[in-house]
Design a binder for these strands. Structure first.
Lengths: 218, 218
DNA sequence: ATAAGTCTGTTGGATTTCCAACATAATAGG
DNA sequence: CCTATTATGTTGGAAATCCAACAGACTTAT
């Protein structure tokens, strides 16, 4: 048990909280640790979420089966990341499935308990709330950025907006992005080879230089 | 002053909090009411936000001036709505400007204070935190839905995904949406008349019926 | 070191979207 | 009620994107 707590102590959600505090936290927040096997369904769409998860070890994928019959892997959840928290706080059921990519161990926390600092003098409660607000707000900012990129009309504009954002984040005209070509195309909602063609044009026009996931705006 | 509090008592952020509690809240949360004139800048991009706003009266617009030189009105803020909260909780500066569409009155609240229930026995603090988590989580879900729609490859698929989401939300095959044609096109990131043509096709194919902002999936 | 697999960029044709112009219907204002 | 304005749908041509196929470069596995 202390084992598991040691593993997640560096997570954003538990930032500023000691391992000793973590121990009593499980009782206070009705924490439950569950194990899942590779390919096992963790959460299914349509399910009402009252406990969100913090991945201790393993890997999960968020999968969307949409109305048109498409299966899309939205993203992957890595150790120390939380999932399902937004749906835990709104009166809407999740529209995605969460599946285990590999054998995984998850700490489930009661969202209601977490957001309501108790009167037991649990000092970590305030910190938890702040951390959670930070995490969800950060996700909102990231989602807003993605929408800004995707809202552009042409592939060229999408690339330019995205790359400029990255430049600002890195405080430099030279930077490395976390995507390969296919992932970047997926992020921008465009077709990979068409985007590649546009990147070539931008290079030929002297707008930028690029090599793999390294970019330099000119 | 009580005047203003009466106006915002129905806001999501203050749900479950009495007007009496609101009064003491201003001191506790370092609440400050500011007035802005039509077209006045409320918040500018690049600004670090420590207090987010709750619009008492008036109307605001969120404006994005992007790298390519475009000015986009992202959305409008109506009375009783909050703004800037995501940026208040993350270590990133806002990328948008917020301007007054008309004379406006705004209550600014200290984000740090709000997320940290004090030890003064302020009972509303817990409720405020819950309300804030709800609001931020709800925005997260809405942004995620918008991305799902915009991620579709064709205008037809975008429409179908969007309309199906609305149908699920309304628990009915018949529903009214909150957008006119231009607004729906903007939401989906497509051109209005092209989307209109696609809607006509869907009608002719017996997929749906529509009349202004009323829809019926068949 | 070699072979297999993956990533990146190129290309031409098919498909889709955008754009501008316009007509008609509906709405708003006096 | 009438007029002006706005919303909606239609249409054809231009522009852009997607798609499939492929070649070459790079990476991984044996």
């Amino acid at each position: 048990m202390l084992n598991e707590l040691e593993k997640i102590k560096d997570s954003e959600l538990l930032n500023g909280i000691t391992v000793e505090e973590l121990s009593s936290m499980l009782g206070c927040l009705r924490g439950v640790i569950k194990k899942y096997q590779k390919d096992e369904l963790v959460l299914s769409e349509g399910e009402k979420i009252e406990k969100f998860g913090l991945l201790i070890e393993g890997r999960l994928r968020i999968v969307l089966y949409d109305y048109l019959g498409n299966k899309t892997i939205i993203s992957e959840i890595k150790p120390n990341q939380i999932f399902g928290e937004a749906f835990a706080y709104v009166d809407k059921v999740s529209s995605t499935n969460i599946e285990a990519i590999e054998d995984s161990k998850i700490l489930f926390l009661d969202s209601e308990k977490l957001s309501t600092p108790c009167n037991n003098g649990c000092l970590f409660h305030k910190q938890l709330v702040k951390n959670l607000l930070y995490i969800i707000s950060n996700k909102n900012v990231n989602l807003t950025e993605k929408i800004e990129c995707m809202s552009q009309r042409t592939t060229r504009e999408k690339l330019l907006i995205f790359l400029n954002m990255e430049s600002i984040k890195n405080n430099s005209k030279e930077f490395t992005i976390a995507f390969d070509r296919q992932a970047l195309a997926d992020y921008l909602g465009v077709e990979r080879s068409a985007m590649s063609a546009e990147l070539s044009k931008l290079r030929n026009e002297g707008v930028l230089e690029s090599e793999k996931n390294k970019f330099k705006l000119l």
